[in-house]
Write a protein that binds this DNA or RNA. Structure first.
Lengths: 215, 215, 215, 215
DNA sequence: TATGAATGAGAATTCATTCAT
DNA sequence: TATGAATGAATTCTCATTCAT
């Protein structure tokens, strides 16, 4: 075991390769979807032999599910942090949406994986997808509940509204991405989405989230 | 699938076999998704031999795409008709949503096929999916534009709002279906969805779509 | 179903192919043993495509186990019938051994399959092998028990003796088959084996099983 | 595997690693059979890296064959010594059988390896197996020949009888081992096997090998 | 028209073996 | 000597598709 203490560099190399393979896997899965993506596609993209794949991962499905969960965690955490960084509903929505759109712009594979890639593909994914949606909905629901208890918005079925938010934002983001130059339109989109959400919650406080627009 | 009876393509009675295979295909595709559904599954369900499948359809993918389009047409037409049956925004939204929810309740396969089944599965579907979303968005956009020109709602980016509607309704419907007894909750859901949409469009007319609820 | 009543010829053809594939499988399994025999070997031998194999059989292991059981049944039945065709121990042994040796000579694959081919190979075979040995031992044990009750041989542990018979005959047969011209030596071998078995059971009746040897 | 300590090959203490791998290999091969046993299984069991395996052994098959031969040598030598330690047929058989049964009881892996493990599995083993059986048969044949020349048993085909002995003892031992508590029954089994063998050789001298049993 | 036996490309996975460190 | 990451040939099995009847 301790014959050569090269274990440090080896470890790092191994981790690097592992990471590079996962990156390749995300690329391929995002591009082709779970079924159409073959293990051969992945290893070709990662420039390793097929056996190497199975040295690092037990099988294709496990890797996919793992990637899905990791990606979901990443997205949810980002949105959640953004939302929690503010205390008033307008800014909570704005920041949350901003976080979502940013990820969509700079890591489009995240959206591909979570919203498109493996939707009806892997049986064992159905559960994870449900969990992902549930957590996403919860993230949007919390600020709504708070706003109600603070009297900022009237009582309403926040669960349903949060669901609607989640679906609405997905569709807006997907459409944004399908544009030729998404980043240019992004800021406008974020504001419109936030205003949409605010109105939908019957928010009647300070109407704009941008102080400049004082009208 | 009762909704196929309304299709022009199936008026020829002689190919009841073709119809039965398409019905079976919808069932199987909806249940298992595109990839997991095998041609054998379909013909077994339709009680015909596998050769018969290839007499009527060129291949699995073509059939799926065809089914997807037909299903999309069916759904879009139903929503469109419902929307167009009214002239005021509140009722347009209400009716449209109602139509959507009804179809989801009584032909859940439609939702499976369009929203879940083959999303990231079939390459040649990407285009059709885009078209489907586009048309769906257009359906929701039109009444918004009308309402603006009538001064019922303030000017706004109706395209973005319509996208949000489409996504929001999908998510609400999907969540509704995942409940144990969707039909019981359906009416409430429809109203909440309509109110959500109305508020989101900054509608400020008669606040309720149901006269009884005068509060 | 009844469109073409060619079902008769088709059925027969199918059965014929099925049989020919099983024959090929026996050949290959007997020659190479379970693991070394690949499905490709079998279909090559049977002159069909690899898919055809899986059209007829669920998988390699199931086929092998089935073949093993069928072969075991065949051998056991043959020996059992031969033994039961006589009533005195000498002839029972003689006939039983004769049957065994005959099968070994004319269907050597039977011996390969049962004694060599898949001994330590397939987990699910362990049970079948144990059953096969058990039944074989029982076949040899019965005439011994009868002989004891008739006073033809002294009381003894017939179970152990029957085990010894089974093992002894196997080894004799295996050695016979490894000779250049087994059939020439076969008759002598059978007699020697029978005499061996008779002596081993302490049989003291008419010493020869062949009436001609009256001395 | 204690019996390898007696091997000349392992006298060099420096390669305890080699020995530990061989021991592990015997364990694993005996437990799973040649094909199911992977090199990884072996090195895991021996607590070394997989590369180490290939430093000591050219490949899996060579090791197996080597192990088989060594194990065969060990068993044959033990039986041979036991047989040669006596001069009269009854005790020669008794001692030989005793030696065999003892090894089976205390080193069951020996029996697994030689009789079960890789019988039809390794092509290059066929020859070694034949040699092993040949030597085993010879061991049993020699005392028979001696007994004939001493007039203790009538002339007979000692080759065939020796084959039968070998097969019979194998089967008896295998059955003994498959019992829940083999060691309890072992002594009885040995005596019955010896008497079986004596009778089968038409031995008519002092009937019991145990003077006490004077009946 | 209808059948279903037959095909074979292609997918996932295993595992003996090599080799840079 | 020892390690274990990396390799890729080989295997089993699936399934869309074809075609003789």
């Amino acid at each position: 075991m301790s014959y050569y203490n090269s274990s440090e560099r080896t470890r790092q190399k191994k981790d690097a390769k592992r990471t590079s393979m996962m990156t390749a896997a995300v690329r391929v899965f995002a591009e082709k979807g779970y079924h159409a993506a073959t293990v051969r596609d992945i290893v070709r993209d990662a420039n390793v032999a097929i056996g190497t794949f199975y040295f690092y991962f037990p099988d294709k499905e496990t890797l996919f599910v793992h990637l899905y969960e990791e990606t979901a965690d990443f997205l949810l955490q980002a949105i959640d942090q953004a939302v929690n960084s503010r205390v008033d509903l307008p800014h909570q929505l704005l920041k949350g949406i901003q976080a979502y759109v940013n990820i969509a712009l700079y890591e489009p594979a995240v959206i591909q994986l979570l919203l498109v890639g493996g939707v009806g593909a892997v049986p064992s994914l159905t559960v994870r997808r449900a969990e992902f949606r549930e957590r996403l909905i919860t993230i949007w629901q919390r600020p709504l509940n708070t706003a109600i208890s603070q009297g900022k918005i009237p009582p309403q079925n926040t669960r349903r509204v949060a669901e609607a938010y989640a679906g609405a934002f997905d569709e807006n983001v997907l459409n944004l991405l399908s544009h030729p130059e998404p980043d240019i339109e992004a800021e406008t989109a974020v504001q419109e989405m936030a205003l949409f959400a605010l109105r939908a919650a019957a928010y009647s406080g300070p109407s704009s989230v941008y102080p400049a627009k004082t009208s």
